[in-house]
Design a protein around this nucleic acid. Structure first.
Length: 476
RNA sequence: GCGCCUCUAGCUCAAUUUGGCAGAGCAUCGGACUCUUAAUCCGCAGGUUCGGGGUUCAAGUCCCCGGAGGCGCACCA
């Protein structure tokens, strides 16, 4: 039997405190004061300052950092201690003291190597900035750059707080299939995979929407799911092929109810995370304090273009206008799609928000219920913050016949080459025939919410392992 | 997919508008140092300047081809 080469590394280490706890408990210690309190800490040696017969190491753990103070006379394996590399994991034990300069420290008596960092970790002051390393070797980025850790920590907090708040409101968290026989619930190109035993193609889900509403049919009056969805589209600072979505459905409610829910959810998260609703995103202030501005899509289009376009505006007029904006409309686009395009081209990016944009054309909303006052529109709203769509919600379409004709319209487009269009989902229509009560539903991109609340310009910074082009052999 | 920009030591970056011996800080390695905070000081070592071709007496620098990445546009959340 070969000997375990890491036999000098212990299998466990019993630490008695963390960096943050030490600072909490011993902040009023005077400089040069030595306590009799003994503690064990563990973490990574980030800086080593060796000075002859004494040495200092800055130890970093997930809570923060604390200094280790070693003396040749009293510290075990002192010589080895002074030769620690940046990044080595160690456990150290000793009394809690403050140095002459007033730095809280563990006066190390005994310590043990927990893992060696064999590979270099970059500039100790500037960390790592090369995106190749930052994203491809995320473990290096995470410990070289404290901010990267903080962002992922915030992501975790945002998602768990969201979950907690929804549960408090009586929502039940559920899980629905990731593998769909029909990719539905959103307008997007899916990833295709194959099931061997059934010999059938399956699609990675582009949205959990249809299954969640089937659960409402089944009697779950308030459900939500926080999970990954997959869309086979380009990669950009705001798009990752897999991203995390929150979807929730509430029976007996309409889209007006969800506007209030959104305001409350997002502003509460901001207060929890940042202590304020007045946040800074990329140098500009956004005030998330409710109520948010509410305006219809048509109002906003008029505001930014000066033209009172509606779904009743002749197709030729809007086509002409879009051409002037530099967009070539496709032949199948009706007035609703054209209006939506004008909004997205001329309007959305300029809305700093938060703005609740409401009442969309029925043509671009195949799953939303018709507006109670205008049959050409649907009761749908999007939340726009910092020029980006953060959430999309509507009063759900509950009528199976209307749903079928909407699906058929989509299927026609799909047949004409629009790969993002839906196809007819008979199982879903069947479910609606069992009766979906009045229901409101919402989808929110959690990654974008994290970007907003952590002031990050790129979605890659809020995802631990973002999708990257495979590394080519040429660079290896 | 199209446009703009970037690539130099392990890391972070220099290398004059107008080509002239490829450098610094940190990290590594050797040494000094009993209160440091990116410790300091002395010393050693460290390079296919992304790859290939061209112009030139001379190319990191100029030109062409290719590669990798970033940003913007487009689709979406």
């Amino acid at each position: 039997m070969a000997e375990d080469p890491s036999s000098c590394i212990p299998y466990r280490y019993e630490r008695t405190t963390t960096a943050a706890l030490l600072h909490d408990q011993f902040s009023d210690l005077a400089a040069e004061e030595e306590t009799e309190v003994r503690h064990s800490v563990a973490g990574r040696a980030m800086l080593v300052r060796s000075q002859g017969k004494i040495a200092f190491v800055t130890l970093v753990d997930s809570s923060g950092q604390v200094q280790l103070f070693a003396r040749a006379a009293t510290t075990a394996k002192f010589k080895e201690f002074t030769r620690l590399s940046l990044g080595d994991w160690i456990g150290a034990n000793g009394k809690v003291v403050k140095t002459k300069r007033g730095e809280l420290s563990i006066l190390v008596e005994d310590w043990v190597m927990l893992a060696e960092a064999r590979l270099p970790f970059g500039d100790k002051w500037r960390g790592i900035t090369d995106v190749e390393i930052r994203y491809r070797q995320r473990e290096v980025d995470l410990w070289a750059n404290a901010r990267s850790r903080e962002i992922l920590q915030s992501r975790s907090t945002i998602i768990s707080e969201t979950r907690r708040m929804l549960e408090e409101e009586g929502f039940v968290e559920v899980e629905t299939p990731m593998l769909h026989p029909i990719a539905g619930g959103a307008l997007a190109r899916p990833f295709v995979t194959h099931h061997n035993a059934l010999d059938m193609d399956l699609y990675l889900r582009i949205a959990p929407e249809l299954y969640l509403k089937r659960l409402v049919v089944g009697g779950f009056e308030k459900v939500f799911e926080i999970g990954r969805v997959f869309r086979n589209e380009g990669i950009s600072p705001r798009h990752n092929p897999e991203f995390t979505i929150l979807e929730l459905y509430q029976a007996y409610a309409d889209y007006e109810d969800l506007m209030v829910s959104m305001e409350s959810l997002v502003s509460t998260l901001a207060r929890k995370l940042l202590g304020t609703t007045r946040i800074i995103y990329q140098g500009k202030e956004v005030d998330l304090e409710p109520p948010w501005r509410r305006a219809t899509l048509e109002e906003l289009v008029e505001e930014s273009t000066g033209c009172a376009f509606t779904v009743d505006t002749p197709v030729t007029v809007m086509t002409e206008f879009l051409r002037d904006l530099g967009t070539v409309p496709e032949s199948g686009w009706g007035s609703g799609k054209l209006l939506m395009e004008i909004y997205e081209k001329a309007c959305e990016a300029h809305l700093w928000g938060p703005v609740i944009v409401k009442d969309f054309p029925v043509e671009v909303s195949p799953l939303a219920r018709r507006h109670r006052d205008n049959q050409a529109l649907v009761e749908r709203f999007e939340v726009v913050i910092a020029g980006r769509e953060l959430a999309n919600a509507f009063s759900e379409l509950v009528d199976p016949d209307d749903q079928r004709s909407r699906f058929e319209m989509q299927a026609l487009r799909h047949a004409n080459g629009d790969e993002e269009a839906m196809t007819v989902d008979e199982d879903y229509i069947h479910a609606l025939e069992h009766g979906l009560p009045p229901t409101a539903g919402l989808g929110m991109g959690m990654d974008r919410l994290v970007m907003l609340l952590t002031d990050q310009p790129s979605i890659r910074d809020v995802i631990a392992f973002p999708t990257l082009r495979p590394q080519s052999r040429a660079t290896e």
